[in-house]
Design a protein around this nucleic acid. Structure first.
Lengths: 222, 222
DNA sequence: CGGGTACTTGACAATGGTCAAGTGTGGTGG
DNA sequence: CCACCACACTTGACCATTGTCAAGTACCCG
């Protein structure tokens, strides 16, 4: 099972054994806090099953989701290499099984095997790319653009014009850097213009051209 | 000189030699493009002297600065480990001397020496932390908050209430995710309320308490 | 001294957030 | 099995923040 985690791909058997011996297996119910911003990090986490959101909170309680973590993905690695404290919060949004990997054992391993270091570099680079895109969208695009980009992303994932949201609309709003009211209004307008159709959490793309134009920053009036 | 670059700190002499043999020394005038978003990466860069901005552009030409690069810092490493293409643009804002490090030689070295891998992990982690803070500010705070946080950061850097901007106000606006007009107005209001004084690019903190409250998301009316 | 760039200021428009009051809807306990 | 409750979502009226457009001033560099 540990061998299926991308981060540990390519590791020699004896090192996989060491990984297995180091980790602690934990189970969380939906809605539980896994780690909190500012907390000293004793290690990092790998999600085996379930779903986790990584997010920031404003002083007034508004939430910005940075990204979601799915099975096989790790989170909370940043303080292993700099700072020592978590830069954001992590909370389960489904019942989840999580492996905890203590700091010292991991740093030993990463010093010993360049494969693990390269895997980690690949993971952090991917994350940096995601964050760059998020900054771009928040700063340079309006909410309809961000929503259009997200719908197109979902559509490309399952290669279909029918896309199902696997998160609540409230969470989608938080991921897009807005609030449920605004998202609801924009979905309503897109629906009225027959760009998409909306049935609960089921969306259908009706006019891909307009979505693509919007995602690129187009000023189509919705 | 190469030994002074944080990324290469702790490397054995023979490996430093290899670094020196691999790099290409380049000089750029102010305002020149070093790399462009989407371009295939043949290697990455280390700034020796001068200053570089890393930024994204919207389709309408608005710019969001992600961060600045100072002497001794590297940039353009992300595609070494994932994707193969640069996620953003880099342009000199001063005459700069830049080392270019080709991909293959670097990957060889990083596989051979865990020190280099750890240095790179530290660098990417630091960057990820920066980006997380940028997302937080863009999404959860208003422009006066971001400006206050930036002024306090500058003040903590040189441990003084007198801070000098080392960039133009236009660039500061782009870094804060706004436009020069808005920045100008907010500086004007802060000045009128005697929170700071503004003389060209020289700022002086007059009321630190209010700045700190603003930076934390406070709703002080300016 | 001249020209371009950086910066400022004003009037206006629009995006999106706030507050308030609904309308479903699914899951749980009686 | 159904009623009810909590929660997700929607809709409306309003307003704050910030961006746009336009014009003008200051300032630095050659």
């Amino acid at each position: 099972m540990v061998a299926d985690i991308p981060l540990f791909k390519g590791l020699a058997k004896e090192q996989l054994d060491e990984v297995v011996n180091s980790i602690a297996d934990q189970t969380f119910d939906r809605g539980q806090t896994v780690l909190s911003e500012g907390e000293a990090a004793e290690g990092f986490f790998v999600l085996v099953q379930g779903k986790v959101k990584i997010f920031k909170l404003s002083t007034e309680g508004k939430e910005q989701i940075l990204h979601f973590v799915g099975p096989g993905e790790s989170f909370g690695e940043v303080p292993m290499f700099s700072g020592g404290r978590f830069p954001a919060n992590a909370e389960t949004i489904e019942k989840s099984r999580i492996f905890f990997f203590p700091r010292a054992a991991f740093l030993d391993l990463i010093g010993a095997d360049p494969t693990l270091a390269m895997n980690m570099l690949a993971e952090l680079s991917k994350r940096l790319r995601q964050m760059t895109r998020l900054v771009e969208e928040l700063s340079l695009k309006e909410v309809p653009s961000r929503l259009a980009a997200y719908i197109l992303y979902l559509s490309s994932e399952n290669e279909s014009d029918d896309v199902g949201l696997d998160i609540t609309k409230g969470q989608l709003a938080s991921l897009l850097g807005t609030i449920p009211e605004t998202l609801s209004r924009i979905l309503g307008k897109m629906s009225a213009q027959e760009v998409i159709s909306v049935q609960g959490r089921k969306l259908k793309i009706l006019d891909r051209t307009i979505l693509e134009d919007l995602a690129a920053g187009g000023k189509f009036v919705i």
